[in-house]
Simulated assay, not measured.
Amino acid sequence: MKNILFALLVRPVILFILGLNIRRKHKLPDKGPCVIIANHNSHLDTLVLMSLFRGKSFAKVRPVAAGDYFMKNKFLAFFSTKVMNIIPIERKMTRDFRGMFKPVLEALDDDGIIILFPEGSRGEAEQLSKYKSGIYYLMREKPEVPIVPLFIHGLGKALPKGSFVFVPFFDIFVGDKFFYTDNRNDFMVEMNERMDALQKEGQFSEW
C-alpha cells in the first residue's frame, strides 16, 4: 500500500510541481541498513527525501518523526503510517536512549533506510539549527551502520515553517558517507563540518 499511495499522492507533486535536482545521486545508498541525515526547514522535507528512493529500497525507507505530532489525529496518523511509514518517537528527556530508539534499531536490523533530522524540529529556511546529540546515542548502538549526509537547498523557501505556499525548484546535495566515532564531541564536530560543507556548496551554486 505504501508504494501505491506514495506514487499516486506524493511523487507527482515532488517531481513535476516542485521540481528536484539531485547532486551526486550515485552516493545515495541503494539498500540498508543506513541512516540518512538532513537539514529540516520545510513541511515537505521528509516526503522529498523519500521520493529519492524506488522499488525495493523505497520499501525499506523509514522516516523518524515526532509521535506527539504525527499521531495526533486519525487523518494524520493514517497518512504518516500508511503512506510515509514513519517510526514515531516520543520527544522527552530520558537517559534510556536504547529504549527510546528501540523501534529505530529494529528497523536497522531489518535493513532499514532511516531518515533522521538531527536538528529535531524545523528551523528557519536555509539555516542550520543546533544539532541535538540524540544521533550520537543512536549510532553508538549501531557503529557499523553508515551515515549519509544530505543538504536540501531551496526547499525551505518552497514551504517553510509557518507557510503553505509552494515555490518550485530546489537542489539536494548528497555527501560522502561516514561512521560513528566513540567520542561525542568528535562525532558532533565531524557531522557539523560535513553538513556545513554541503550547505556552502548549495550557497555557491546560486552564484
Rank of each mutant, 00 (worst) to 15 (best):
S121A: 14
V83N: 07
P168N: 05
D109Q: 05
D182T: 11
V148Y: 01
R140M: 11
M195T: 02
L116Y: 15
P118D: 02
E141V: 05
K31A: 04
N85L: 04
I152R: 07
A7E: 06
D30M: 03
Q203S: 15
N183S: 13
V48T: 13
R62L: 07
I17C: 15
F101V: 04
L15I: 03
S51L: 05
F151K: 05
G19Y: 08
T94W: 14
P118F: 09
T94N: 00
N73A: 08
P168M: 06
D196P: 01
F53E: 00
A77I: 01
E126N: 05
N73Q: 02
K56P: 13
A59F: 07
G134R: 02
L108A: 11
E201S: 05
P146N: 13
D171Q: 08
P33I: 06
S42Y: 07
P149K: 01
T46I: 11
K161F: 02
I86R: 02
K74R: 11
F179T: 08
E126L: 10
P168A: 03
S51I: 06
Q203G: 12
N73M: 03
M84Q: 05
A77K: 14
F70G: 07
F53R: 04
I113L: 06
L47C: 13
E144W: 10
R95F: 09
D111K: 00
L108Q: 03
K102L: 14
L138F: 07
A125Q: 08
I147D: 01
E119D: 10
L5C: 12
A107Y: 06
I152V: 13
D186E: 06
E193R: 15
G67W: 06
T81V: 12
Y137R: 00
I87M: 00
H153P: 06
H40L: 04
D111H: 07
T181E: 09
K27E: 11
D171R: 15
H153N: 10
L138E: 04
K56Y: 08
M50A: 12
V174N: 02
S133T: 12
A7V: 03
R91L: 14
D45E: 04
D171W: 11
D30I: 00
T94D: 04
L20H: 04
E124A: 15
A197Q: 10
E126G: 08
T94I: 08
V10K: 03
F187A: 14
G123V: 10
K177R: 15
K60R: 14
G32E: 03
F79D: 00
L159M: 15
K27Q: 15
V48Q: 09
D109M: 04
N39C: 09
E206R: 06
R194F: 04
P63G: 06
M84I: 01
R98Q: 12
P149W: 02
G19C: 01
I87P: 09
D111V: 03
E141P: 07
G154E: 01
K27Y: 13
I114E: 11
M84P: 06
L8Y: 15
P29Q: 12
V104P: 13
R194N: 10
L5V: 14
N73K: 13
G134T: 01
M188Q: 12
N85H: 11
L138D: 05
F6E: 00
L20Q: 07
S121V: 07
A66C: 00
R54L: 11
G99F: 05
R140V: 06
